[in-house]
Amino acid sequence: MTTQQAMITIFMVALGTIITRFLPFILFPAGRPTPKYIDYLGKLLAPAVFGLLVVYCLKNVSFLQGSRGVPELIGVAATAGLHLWKRKMLLSVAGGTAVYMLLVQLVF
């Protein structure tokens, strides 16, 4: 990707983000009720998108070649385990990443 293409990509990401933040204020001026379908999506879209993002992060992991996704599985398990144990976001993220880095640098 050229620098120009990269800047266009960043611009599109910024634009998309700005749209999601401004749209409610444009569509629903203060005081008017919001459509039920929007309320419904508001509650239910977020968890599904989080699931999509987890899959997105692991999209290039091959379970048939190389390390067969073993460091990724251990890294995810360490992150989730730490989070279930202490429930501190930064600790879980830092700990899980450290485990994964040690695995790919020293073991696999």
């Binding site: 989080f50 993002l53 987890v54 992060c57 692991l58 460091p71 989070h83 879980s92 899980g96 880095m101």
Partner: peptide
């Protein structure tokens, strides 16, 4: 820093799990 890209995976795993 090899493997630091996993920070993104870990972050989304935590967000997903927390939810």
């Amino acid at each position: 820093t090899e493997g630091i890209d996993f920070v993104m995976t870990a972050m989304f795993v935590v967000i997903f799990l927390e939810n």
